[in-house]
Design a protein around this nucleic acid. Sequence first.
DNA 1: CGCCAGGCCTGCACGC
DNA 2: TGCGTGCAGGCCTGGC
Length: 271
Amino acid sequence: MPELPEVETTLRGLSPHLQGQRIKQAIIRNANLRWPIPDNLSAMLRKQTIQALNRRAKYLLLECDDGTLILHLGMSGSLRVLPANTPAEKHDHFDLLLENGTLMRLRDPRRFGAVLWHTGDISQHKLFASLGPEPLLEDFDGAYLYRVTRKRSAAIKLVIMDSQVVVGVGNIYASESLFHAGIRPQLPAGKLSLPRCNRLVQTIRETLSASIAQGGSTLRDFTDSNGKPGYFQQTYRVYGRTGEPCRMCETSIKQIVQGQRSTFYCPVCQK
DNA sequence: CGCCAGGCCTGCACGC
DNA sequence: TGCGTGCAGGCCTGGC
């Protein structure tokens, strides 16, 4: 369940190991991810230097000399840095072996992740062309959210999970942010006032930032082959707490389905 | 054994 | 036309 904070933590953990390093070899053990890993990827990556590592939405971007390696962790993916001779296990589908002996390994049991190669401007890539703003950058603010929700009758929870509105707000943080903002997930987006849009933007930023900060504390384990790099269990306010007492008012937390996924909320604290 | 979770893309039908 | 919306389907495995 990598959400944006896990992806950001992974980025920060990988960067010092990978930045400026030259790729010796890419190994594809199972190309069958969400989309097939391109056939020619190994040839493309050979001798490429990783100039910079970045993140857009939940995609990790390894910017190389001649193009960008796009990585997505899907539901169950994780990336680790390991010694070059570490034996691969069952769900280890992709390796990047660096000339300095470092190995970056993708493990993804459910194979919802992705490994893609793109040359040219990444914003032109099909997957990136219509993405909304990053939730932690300044162009995502209350005025923006107010403007883009005006004519939308869909539930606010679905709208903040719409990657054209804002990226990186997954199912867990959507429920959590709405709880902190005191907004009922079913509320038609167009009915939110400007102050409530301001508040919701604030709580989205805060829940994501707090989680990233917490993830940072696990970074020392990033290269530990036994650990789960950059992943962290948190205490949620509503997510997964169906029937348990609200931490604010003790009312039983409700679970509903929106857009074929579970939503959790407090029927008293959220209006 | 069956069912569910999850990210996120794709396709369909429908109404304005 | 082209969009927003609601729905379903696909991909996959581990855990209950």
